[in-house]
Design a protein around this nucleic acid. Sequence first.
DNA 1: CGGGATATTGAAAATGACATTCAGAAGCTA
DNA 2: TAGCTTCTGAATGTCATTTTCAATATCCCG
Lengths: 143, 143
Amino acid sequence: MDRAAVFNEYLRRKGLKNTKQRMTILEAFQGSKFHYSTEELYLELRKDHPKIGYATVHRTLKLFAECGIAIELNFGDGQSRFEPLNENQHHDHLVCTNCGLIIEFMEPRIENLQGQVAARYDFKIESHRHELYGLCSNCAKQR
Amino acid sequence: MDRAAVFNEYLRRKGLKNTKQRMTILEAFQGSKFHYSTEELYLELRKDHPKIGYATVHRTLKLFAECGIAIELNFGDGQSRFEPLNENQHHDHLVCTNCGLIIEFMEPRIENLQGQVAARYDFKIESHRHELYGLCSNCAKQR
DNA sequence: CGGGATATTGAAAATGACATTCAGAAGCTA
DNA sequence: TAGCTTCTGAATGTCATTTTCAATATCCCG
């Protein structure tokens, strides 16, 4: 299921409407590898679709994040940025040291910070491992 | 070297001045285990020091972050929060897969996000490992 | 210990990102 | 297609943060 499908299903489920603007914004958003802020995407869209308003872009990006096809990131420049999210994203692990349960998690904000750390040391990341060890919900209760 | 010493040295090095307000704010900030936002610390300070202005609190917190005795965190509630930072903080590693160089790094924002991930799964973190593998500055150049 | 250059302070106003409002337009369901 | 509901876009509101500015405090140097 691609992003458009996920988005449409989300709209339907929520009783929201599929509009030209929303589809146009999704298309522009998907197309790029860039981390758009609301303003940047708005300015970009303006070239071909001068009638789409800033508020609409903003509301639509929020919708993307809500339905899981995008992640809202914060690079500390005072603007939220949105990154298209894929289904088969890299994930890391929570490992229960008591029962061995392994939970997969994805946290793009950590990936992002890793990049910032690497840049700090002029380091080129090729791979990483990130594991959190502790007690899962069940095991924590039993103690 | 405690935080006050680090802060004072930073001020001196930058040609900035050691003022009563700054010391008062540092004291209040250090005392708590709380993650203060500018507004919260301002309101707290007001009780004993009604003449300290909001802007001064804000500027001083920024200074703390600049000189490394605090970290600015963003919990997504639209307000920046500041956490006192200790010297012997947990650190993780950058590992060069070519020359074996190991760089230690500290990134409280990653630690913070780890906590958020754990909370998501009702998981109690006891420890973690986080290693970034790739090429250090030198090795990257030689390729 | 002053004098004077320079940074700081605090109140108020500005800024800027984000959110909301509202009237007209468009989508959806039957 | 009717008719109800949601959307849209421009304008405006909101709120945290930043800046401004005139008065004040600090620090350096003789």
